[in-house]
């Protein structure tokens, strides 16, 4: 089992990737402070495939990055 990482370590090691953290330590704002990275990939589906395989009771999944500067998003 990998060791828990701080959010600073996670953000610096996996830029512009989708990240799955198991048993995240979150603050009152729900942002992840630390946890065990169980999967990371540029491909969101790959990260969720791993998550659904593990079936964690507590998890966090997010994209560690911003859309490109020139990207326009209209939802």
């Amino acid at each position: 089992m990998p060791n828990a990482m701080t959010i600073e370590e996670i953000e610096s090691q996996f830029p512009d990737e989708w990240i799955l953290v198991i048993d995240p330590n979150t603050g009152p704002d729900l942002k992840v402070r630390s946890g065990v990275v169980a999967a990371h990939s540029k491909d969101r589906d790959e990260v969720y495939r791993k998550a659904l395989e593990l079936k964690p009771k507590r998890s966090a999944v997010w994209f560690n990055g911003d859309p490109p500067e020139d990207a326009v998003i209209v939802l």
């Binding site: 998890s59 999944v61 997010w62 939802l75």
Partner: peptide, 23 residues
Amino acid sequence: NPARGLIRVEVVVSGPIGNAVVQ
């Protein structure tokens, strides 16, 4: 981040298996 991108908010989705924090 007020300067760029979407306003991303962390949410907890709770269900029969567990809790997932997503943005």
